[in-house]
Amino acid sequence: MDDKDMINLWKSYDKRLEESLILNRKNTEEITRINVQNSIGSMKPVKLVILLVGIAWVSAGSVLVVNLLRFSFEEVSKFFLFSATAQLFITLLAIIVYLYQFVLIQQVDSSEPILETQKKVAQLQSSTLWVTRILFLQLPLWTTFYLSESLFKNANLAFYLLQGFVTLSFTYAAFWLFVNINYGNSDKKWFRLLFDGREWTPVIKSMEMLRQIEEYH
């Protein structure tokens, strides 16, 4: 075999090797896309259950509040009415966000462009942070719904101090969480405790897999 044959053989080997690498990269990318879709799709049952529970909660609560306003407005505690109404409104906002997320999850498709998938996953991440921030705004309401005018009239100083401390503590906690729940704190221990679950982990894993696909190009 002369030098020319050796060169041609080497070129042929290089070509087959390059084609094999391209094919492997393509297969790896397709598998990763499918894994991303499956990972995001695994969130659907959780989102659906939360949606159904949230809708049932708001429906039942709304019926209760409306009936109290219609038939026993004078007797019912205004603290309860305010707390319940505000809690139902916050839950309704959360339901809207969860419905938006459910639609996003349905739209994730392994055959769509990477940028489109990245955009949807980023929207899932952002909306997950936002819905958690919104839901924590309910914290102070759980310290006021049981109050009544008669309770305040007959209470002593110890009650006022304890009630004030609890309500202010929960209000501060709600405000602090609303401000600090952001991706910049994702490395903090308290953040990982809050977001270590089926509503967060698939999103982070999908983002990592999408970054791997970007590296193939």
Rank of each mutant, 00 (worst) to 15 (best):
D2A: 04
D3K: 12
I7G: 01
W10H: 11
W10K: 12
K15H: 11
R16I: 06
E19L: 13
S20Q: 15
L21D: 12
E29W: 05
E29D: 12
E30G: 01
R33M: 07
I34M: 09
V36Q: 03
N38T: 10
G41V: 01
S42M: 05
M43P: 02
M43R: 04
M43H: 05
K44C: 00
K44T: 13
P45G: 10
L48V: 12
I55H: 03
A56E: 03
A60G: 03
G61M: 07
G61E: 06
V65T: 12
N67M: 14
R70W: 13
S72T: 04
S72G: 10
E75C: 00
E75P: 00
V76A: 14
V76N: 12
K78R: 15
L81D: 08
S83Q: 09
A84R: 07
F89W: 10
F89M: 14
T91K: 08
T91I: 10
L92R: 06
L93A: 08
I95E: 09
I96M: 01
Q101G: 03
Q101H: 01
L104G: 04
L104D: 07
I105D: 01
I114A: 02
L115S: 15
Q118E: 13
V121K: 06
Q125N: 14
T128D: 05
L129T: 09
I134Q: 10
L139E: 05
P140V: 04
W142C: 05
T144W: 04
L147C: 01
S150K: 14
S150D: 14
F152R: 10
F152H: 12
K153W: 11
K153Q: 14
N154A: 14
F159P: 08
F159A: 10
Y172D: 00
Y172Q: 01
F178S: 07
V179P: 00
N180L: 07
G184R: 11
G184T: 05
D187G: 15
R192E: 12
L193V: 10
F195I: 08
D196M: 03
G197Q: 01
E199N: 11
T201A: 08
T201I: 13
V203R: 01
V203H: 02
S206P: 02
M207T: 04
M207R: 13
E208Y: 11
E208M: 12
I213H: 10
I213T: 07
E214D: 15
Y216M: 15
